[in-house]
Design a protein around this nucleic acid. Sequence first.
DNA 1: CGATAGTTTCAGAAATAACCGAAATACTCT
DNA 2: AGAGTATTTCGGTTATTTCTGAAACTATCG
Lengths: 179, 179
Amino acid sequence: MGVEKYPEALEFILHWGEMGTHWGANRSVAQVHALLYLSKKPLDAEAICGALDLARSNVSTALKELQGYGIVRRTHVAGDRRDHFVAETELWEMFMAITAERKKREIDPVIAKLAELKERMAANKDLPAHVRDRIGGMHDFINTLTTWYGQVRGLKKSTLISLMKLGAKVARFIPGGKD
Amino acid sequence: MGVEKYPEALEFILHWGEMGTHWGANRSVAQVHALLYLSKKPLDAEAICGALDLARSNVSTALKELQGYGIVRRTHVAGDRRDHFVAETELWEMFMAITAERKKREIDPVIAKLAELKERMAANKDLPAHVRDRIGGMHDFINTLTTWYGQVRGLKKSTLISLMKLGAKVARFIPGGKD
DNA sequence: CGATAGTTTCAGAAATAACCGAAATACTCT
DNA sequence: AGAGTATTTCGGTTATTTCTGAAACTATCG
């Protein structure tokens, strides 16, 4: 019996799907992800269709997308020819995979565009200074954030968890950062 | 002359609008924001319509949304009866305002739903243990992240900037976190 | 080398979200 | 108060995205 038969599990799937529409993903992608996340055993595409009442092709697209994010992978089940799928259940891994992919899709293009504009603006003498400053400032700001992100994501998981537990107390290590 | 007449400024506005569609906002909202961000002087709604070729009502809705995020505010211009609008140009402030609002809209409802499910699952004896664990684990994980966020966002801006500059070096202060 | 089972692609249909313009409402000044 | 101007709300339209079902493609087994 599939987990989607339990009311709480189904509600989780539906809510997750709904939230997905407000984030980058569409409803189907988020629902498939939620189902796999709750499932103990690998599921084949047909089983997912049945559980969520989605078209086979839609499930295929969703699985591809989730594999693109790196949070779902194919496995093989002995004695079964069909592909089966499992979701990453380590939440830290999942979170890292999603942020990395979203950065690639949504932040990197902005940085590239801002860099391009910056270059062109340097050669454009009658552009008001404040426009140059604002666009340049945005570029610098996003660069600062992503550089920080790039460094921090390289830390060991255990170190990151310790840092999170420390919370606001990290400020103790900063001169003048008592509060 | 409005900034949207400069090719680089216009490109910034269009690109920002396009990216907006991939984030929570719609194109119009993001474009209005970009225009105000680049504008040195406060703009009235009519001027925004003209600059971006949007319907008056659409601009009205966009301005309301941006004020809801706390990144645009109304001002008055001497000798002019119309409302005028300016964007937050302090990028750090802007970033904090957006993350706070997105948390409220997109994360808090998930936490509430997960808490509700957790409670109901506790009373449901024939629910498989792994379903309880996975949903509970998600709840704990998101709580950990948001608790950390809540603490860190309370720090002084200067402290936060110092921490960012430190980057991966913060790990030095964690026992066993050399890398 | 077919036959069969499994998967993906794609064009159109359905659903959703964005946008416009007209009408209603609110405000300001005399 | 009421004329004139500014702003918001709302029903309908358009644009965009998502989803489907059929067809094409791929792989595996006898």
